[in-house]
Design a protein around this nucleic acid. Structure first.
Length: 421
RNA sequence: GGCGGAUUGCCAGAGUGGUCAAUUGGGCUUGACUGUAAAUCAAGUGUUCUUUAGCUACGCAGGUUCGAACCCUGCAUCCGCCA
């Protein structure tokens, strides 16, 4: 197997841009990602199935409401049921009965969420920032401990310790078998200083990315009989323009045995107000580094205005837990914003969440009923609400994609926000 | 008819002379949620415009005391057991 041509193997994964060069948004594009398990028309929203399930909703329903791919998590699946189970099952998709493309996050998010960060750290506004600025000093029950080589987690399930390095993360992700994997990175927070962000990039995220690619090359060779699994590097740099540009240049030029990154994740701590700028720094730099034809995934973002911003600045795919989590908590999406269906005023509201919605929930159930189910803690409430929110975001991104393809993006956007009022 | 026990805020239920506008649950109200330690979390929940404040409050009425949800007397209602 040592003579396996990695470059050739890599061609099982591809991205074709079919539409770009909008007069107003030169970075925007639309295309098709091809993976061994199917295509993804972009821009696309990728619902999050952390533990190999969209909480409360079957893959069949997810498919029926327009999901093209799902994203799971290496940290969580390693803890339970263990990546070997997924490998034996024939990979993540087979295991969970999802016959389409899949993504896995590397566990990099848990470096932050189980480490120094908790709640509202990844994306927040400057104002919020000042009110809770001492998060870093709190260190409450920290479960992730970073060193230069990797991260030691204390399992949130039983406290046992669990080591993640770029090599381990890639091994786990290869065993899980997703079509698109992410390099192991350090997700910092907005509360880290600029010096820390620089150190994090130079001594961890960058070297870890290279090591991820090395491990990926080895594992691809070792598992040559399996479908190719693409590897995306993650661009960090918080809200610093120079760091974002540098990391984009650096990571688009990394190569190991002829293998380079298949795409890029844009991640990290970012100020809401500067999201568009941050993305454009990355994508502009990727373009100038000759990586324009590689897909970019914006990690963990799905607020409506952020989706428009992302697309306009050259993002191809998005993922986010929000539609599902907020649904479970009673926040339901409508074009004019989020409603909290648990509010007293909906108790006897026998109309659907959004009358123009084409989802199963809106076709069959009322706000009154949803409010009742969710307030009562009934499982079915979470299911119905999740179907609606996921469909709302999937449809929005689908509509955006179609409008780019037909050259009507700006019209569509104007209409969408006009309807919102 | 006799003996004993109970009565606290929307509900359950602590408190048994001052630090009690009253612990704690639940409910209710409103927020938050962005690569999921999240079917989670936070705040509020007598009244007066705000308050380190005033007023009204622990079945009802009276009393003791500097001071009572807490002690005493009577009444009302409920629950046991005995006739």
């Amino acid at each position: 197997m040592n003579d396996l041509n990695l470059k050739e193997k890599q061609s099982e994964f591809s991205f074709k841009i079919s539409k770009k060069k909008d007069s107003c948004f030169p970075l925007m594009r639309s295309g098709t990602i091809t993976t061994p398990h199917g295509d993804i028309q972009t821009p696309a929203f990728i619902p999050v199935a952390t533990r190999a399930t969209i909480k409360g909703v079957s893959p069949e329903i997810m498919r029926s409401i327009g999901a093209q791919a799902l994203l799971a998590n290496a940290y969580h699946l390693r803890l339970r049921p263990g990546e070997n189970i997924l490998d034996s099952a024939g990979g993540l998709g087979k295991f969970m009965n999802w016959n389409g493309p899949t993504f896995t996050d590397s566990g990099g998010f848990q470096v932050m969420s189980l480490g120094v960060g908790f709640k509202k750290v990844v994306a927040m506004s400057v104002q919020e920032n000042s009110t809770s600025g001492n998060l870093l000093s709190k260190k409450k029950q920290q479960l992730a401990f970073i060193d230069q080589d990797g991260v030691t987690f204390k399992s949130h399930l039983d406290g046992s310790s669990l080591r993640f390095t770029p090599e381990i993360s890639l091994e786990v992700q290869h065993a899980i078998g997703a079509d698109i994997m992410f390099a192991f990175d350090e997700l910092t927070t907005l509360f880290h200083t600029r010096d820390y962000q620089i150190e994090s990039l130079k001594t961890r995220t960058h070297p870890w990315s290279v090591r991820s690619l090395q491990a990926h090359a080895e594992l691809t060779r070792k598992r040559a009989d399996k479908p190719y699994q693409a590897l995306f590097a993650v661009l960090q740099g918080a809200n610093f323009e120079d760091l974002r540009r540098q990391t984009s240049q650096y990571l688009s030029n990394v190569e190991v045995e002829g293998l380079d990154f298949d795409g890029f994740g844009i991640g990290g701590a970012l100020e809401k107000e500067r999201l568009g700028d941050i993305i454009s720094w990355c994508t502009t730099e990727l373009n100038s580094a000759g990586a324009e034809d590689k897909p970019r995934h914006l990690l963990g973002i799905s607020a409506v205005s952020d989706l428009f911003l992302g697309v306009e600045n050259g993002v191809d795919t998005f993922d986010c837990v929000s539609p599902a989590r907020e649904a479970r908590n009673g926040a339901l999406y409508t074009p004019s914003g989020r409603i909290n269906v648990k509010n007293a005023k909906y108790r006897a509201d026998f109309t659907p969440v959004y009358d123009q919605c084409d989802c199963y929930t809106c076709a069959n159930y009322t706000k009154s009923y949803l409010a009742h189910l969710i307030k009562s803690g009934e499982m079915f409430g979470a299911t119905l609400a999740t179907i609606h929110n996921e469909r709302f975001i999937l449809r929005l991104v689908d509509d955006i994609r179609e409008s780019i393809q037909t050259g009507n993006y700006q019209e569509f956007k104007a209409d969408f926000f006009a309807r919102a009022e």
